[in-house]
Design a protein around this nucleic acid. Structure first.
Length: 287
DNA sequence: CGATACACCTGTGTGC
DNA sequence: TGCACACAGGTGTATC
């Protein structure tokens, strides 16, 4: 579900509900998700004040004044939603109270001021962990991540070095979080289409000019998607419960058999499977 | 080292 | 209506 734009959307949405507020209590309703929750998580969260919310790749990092940081990953189906603020769970319908607990509400953070933040995750591929803030960068889940695609470290030179000699298809390589951190299946398909690069092309056989263009396009796609509040296919909701809207701008993703939207292209979007995951592309204009 | 398969889960849509 | 099956936004681990 959530790729970088969705995670950034959630981070931004959670910020007003969390930053500066104390976690009065943490309601932990199961032992763990993908991994067991850290030892004593509820006690370690209780009475900690949230200093700020950061994002690294698809992880939300919540810095606490206790000296620890809460790491959150939404997996495929995770949501973090707010209740108690004047936030619309359905656009236009404002909740000033707390709805009853839903199935798969695994953790509820009770915040100062009667605000709640609920982590709901049906598939339970999500994760929570706690570690001392200065050690968070070196966390097992973060230490091997490549550069942020919206940061200065991500460049055509970086891609060229990372892809050099690689025979794997570019689609697969862009999903490798060690090469660039934050892209997922949707935005890789969308970026390759805009860059007119065939998803099966060997990573090491893309020239510098095309890499330059690809870097710019990846940034554009991600920024447009953040602007649109992410993409809502089935599960995704913003922190206030709103839908994202970027799915209306998909050019290839989940659009098999539709005409290629490229100017003057008569192609038809195809679906293939690469490394077990669907790839959507136009065989006509992507080379 | 690189490439691939599989594992972890629930929910939904499709075709019979 | 029921059932079997494919598939879904991710990623660590095992295996060649």
């Amino acid at each position: 579900m959530p790729e970088l734009p969705e995670v950034e959307t959630v981070r931004r949405g959670l910020t007003p509900a969390m930053e500066g507020r104390v976690i009065t209590s943490a309601e932990v309703r199961r032992e763990g998700l993908r991994w067991p929750f850290p030892e004593g998580m509820a006690e370690r969260l209780q009475n900690a004040r949230v200093e700020r919310l950061r994002r690294r790749s698809k992880y939300i990092l919540i810095d606490l004044d206790s000296g620890e940081t809460l790491l959150v990953h939404l997996g495929m189906s995770g949501r973090m939603t707010i209740s108690g603020l004047a936030a619309p769970f359905v656009p236009g319908v404002f909740h000033h109270h707390h709805p009853a607990a839903l199935k798969h509400d695994h953790v509820v953070l009770h915040m100062e001021g009667d605000v709640r933040v609920t982590f709901n995750d049906p598939r339970r591929f999500g994760a929570l962990d706690l570690a001392p803030t200065p050690q968070m960068d070196g966390h097992l889940l973060l230490r091997n991540l490549g550069p942020e695609p919206l940061g200065n470290q991500f460049s055509a030179q970086h891609l060229q070095a990372a892809l050099k000699g690689r025979k794997a298809p570019i689609k697969t390589l862009l999903l490798d979080q060690r090469i660039v951190a934050g892209l997922g299946n949707i935005y890789v398909c969308e970026a390759l289409h805009r860059a007119r690069i065939h998803p099966e092309r060997a990573g090491g056989r893309i020239g510098m000019a095309r890499l330059e263009a690809l870097v710019v396009i990846i940034r554009e796609v991600l920024m447009e998607a953040i602007e649109a509040g992410g993409s809502s296919l089935k599960d995704f909701r913003q922190a206030g419960g709103e839908l994202g809207y970027f799915q209306h701008n998909f050019r290839t993703y989940d659009r098999e058999s539709h005409p290629c939207p490229s100017e003057g292209c008569a192609g038809v979007i195809r679906r293939i499977v690469q490394s077990g995951r669907s790839t959507y592309y136009c065989p006509q204009c992507q080379r």
